[in-house]
């Protein structure tokens, strides 16, 4: 204890009547060092302050997001024919499709694509094939009927 500290104690005790518990400054010093040590340790294991950890976490999150987006993203309408034919080819190659194109193939393909896109594809197929065939049949009958009459 230096002279300045002694005078400080004396002045506060004698003139102001302030006291402290026995060995207060020693006990207090140890408490402060202990608290500072805890602060220091918590700083060392602090996960959130490490920039490297943040960078790695952000990278993982980015890769995960891109993967999930790619997996669940809906194919564009112009990709539909390709998807359906790829599915049929795969099935053919694996002898899953023995004969020819069947209705189930569209259903199987629909498992891989967005429902709205499947609807659009089916409507498109219906207009192109079924309606066109129907129109052709009617035209032939009309022509035959005409030939028969005249």
């Amino acid at each position: 204890m230096d002279l300045k500290d002694k005078n400080l104690d004396k002045r506060h005790c004698k003139e102001l009547g302030f006291k402290t518990p026995d060995d207060y400054f020693l006990i207090s010093k140890n408490e402060i060092l202990s608290k500072v040590s805890k602060t220091k340790n918590s700083k060392l294991i602090s996960f959130y302050n490490n920039k490297m950890v943040w960078f790695v976490a952000a990278s993982i999150a980015l890769v995960f997001t891109i993967t999930m987006y790619k997996q669940y993203t809906s194919p564009k309408i112009f990709e539909m024919n390709q998807i359906v034919s790829d599915t049929i080819n795969t099935q053919k190659n694996e002898n899953l499709l023995a004969y020819s194109f069947q209705e189930e193939d569209v259903l199987i393909a629909s498992l891989f694509v967005n429902e709205a896109n499947v609807d659009a594809f089916i409507t498109n197929e219906f207009i192109n094939n079924v309606l066109a065939d129907e129109y052709l049949d009617e035209y032939i009958i009309d022509e035959l009927m005409t030939d028969d009459i005249f």
Partner: peptide, 28 residues
Amino acid sequence: YQKRLYWHIRKLVITHDNANDVLQNTFI
């Protein structure tokens, strides 16, 4: 500085218990 700061704080907050709390917070 422990003593100098303790007595400085003690006169501002008056009681020993309060001064002790504030002193610890100060050093942290």
